[in-house]
């Protein structure tokens, strides 16, 4: 049994060691400062268009489906409640994270993987650089800061587009939509969504950095690392989503 599980334990050990090393490297501020700003632009500003597009369609689809479910069964202003709650609690953080796992995670894994197989990470080490401080810490900090920011943008555009579609589809006013939105809203919902997106924002680059940093085997290895990064992050997002809903949401009950 242990023999079967050994590779998994080894991977977890290496992953933990990389995160531990990243934590220690936080004191090496001068090494990661410039790269952190660059990564924040990449993760935040450059991801904004795709996140806004996803957020807009998420809100539109959600409102159409909720209106379909509510018709002749419940007051239509409840569409505001359901759209707002579902976007803030679930769709905003999760869809933003999945988008980032594909766009940012794949890019980080490919970049670090290529640097590993072309000995660029070794070159950093022999130049007396701390490669974790230079390459990994910036993406972790940028991920934790920028993912919640992007999620807020996705939430706002999602609710806004949901509101517009509701107004255009059925005889509902903006005031009624907002009445519904306020009906079940509690501030903890927003806090929960932001905490959730920060957790996703940590693990997406962490997974990508891990598989990239330990890539082996040339171009094929880089390809596999990129795929692994997206798959691991996507699965992890789903698992963490459930765990946080189960344990974190109870704090708001």
């Amino acid at each position: 049994m242990f023999a079967i599980m050994e590779p998994l334990f080894t991977e977890i050990g290496k992953y933990g060691k990389l995160l531990w090393w990243s934590g220690i490297s936080l004191r090496d501020f001068s090494t990661y400062y410039d790269n952190t700003i660059r990564r924040m632009k990449f993760i935040g500003i450059q991801s904004l268009p795709i996140v806004l597009l996803t957020g807009a369609f998420m809100g539109m689809v959600e409102s159409v489906q909720v209106l379909y479910s509510l018709q002749n069964r419940a007051p239509l202003y409840l569409v505001g409640s359901v759209v707002t709650e579902s976007i803030i609690l679930e769709l905003g953080p999760v869809l933003t994270a999945l988008i980032l796992a594909g766009r940012v995670g794949a890019s980080i894994a490919a970049e670090l993987g290529t640097m590993r197989v072309t000995e660029q990470i070794d070159a950093l080490e022999v130049m007396a650089f701390n490669p974790v401080a230079y390459l990994v810490v910036p993406v972790l900090i940028a991920g934790v800061i920028m993912t919640p920011v992007l999620t807020i943008f996705a939430d706002v555009i999602g609710i806004l587009s949901g509101c517009i579609i509701s107004i255009l589809t059925v005889d509902l006013s903006t005031a009624e939509f907002l009445k519904g939105a306020r009906r079940f809203f509690v501030p903890w919902d927003l806090t929960y969504g932001i905490i959730k997106s920060a957790v996703f924002g940590f693990f997406i680059p962490a997974n990508a950095a891990y598989v990239g940093f330990f890539t082996k085997g040339g171009a094929e290895g880089v390809g596999k690392a990129t795929t692994r990064s997206v798959v691991i992050s996507s699965v992890m997002i789903l698992i963490l989503d459930y765990l946080m809903a189960q344990f974190l949401l109870k704090a708001g009950w």
């Binding site: 290529t114 072309t118 660029q120 070159a123």
Partner: peptide
């Protein structure tokens, strides 16, 4: 380095 390992 054999491959030069320049930061591309």
């Amino acid at each position: 380095f054999q491959s030069s390992a320049l930061f591309d």
